[in-house]
Design a protein around this nucleic acid. Sequence first.
DNA 1: CCCTGATTCGC
DNA 2: GCGAATCAGG
Length: 235
Amino acid sequence: MEWTDELIARLKELWEQGLSTAEIGRQLSITKNAVVGKAHRLGLPPRPSPIRNKAAAEGAASGKPARSRTSRTRKAEEAPAEDGVKAEPPAAAGQKTAAPPTEKKAAGTARAKAAAEKVEKPARAKAAGTAAKTGGAVKDAPSRKAADDVDVDDEADLVSARRPAAPASQRKVAPPRRVRDTLDRPSRQGPTCQWPIGDPGTPDFHFCGASPLSGKPYCAEHAAIAYVKIRDRRH
DNA sequence: CCCTGATTCGC
DNA sequence: GCGAATCAGG
């Protein structure tokens, strides 16, 4: 493979945006391994790894094997000791919005499908996947102030934050459709139910638009579906 | 299982 | 230098 300046620039850019290596790989049409490998060689700042570095952990303890792997993987002895790297959740394409059911069915499927078609689903779809995967239904969020704007703004941000970063040549994605479009001219004033109807990205996609419950982004009907009680959390 | 990033090492 | 294979952890 040929790492052109252009490609490297793109990699850096996406890397800085905090996208996962796999995601970057998808967007650049390469494997995540290629991404990680290159990132390393480029000396790009490592992102919070899901794997905890044992080396740092023990240390004080007796000389534990730190690594008992095969001939491979014999790292385990470096540990910058900089444990303050808990950093934040980068990409975070949406882990805040309440579970939007429209896509939830395909939580796992959505991803695969998207990958397969190389289609970038609108933020909402991703949010759904993430939410479902992470733990599902987001509990009611009373802390959320205004009922309006919430989802809309979140998505708007996500959409705008996610730059095309690719020359249309390799992303056969529908033009970034602003969610706002469907909300620009509400039939009436005030907050409206943000429950998604239809497949995001398709022309007929829209939001419910009914009058939402106070403090919630959805109308009574949809709020009932959106806010599924996971389990009583008592202590 | 899915996912994540990190590392190794044959090429 | 590259990245598949593999690892380790959630």
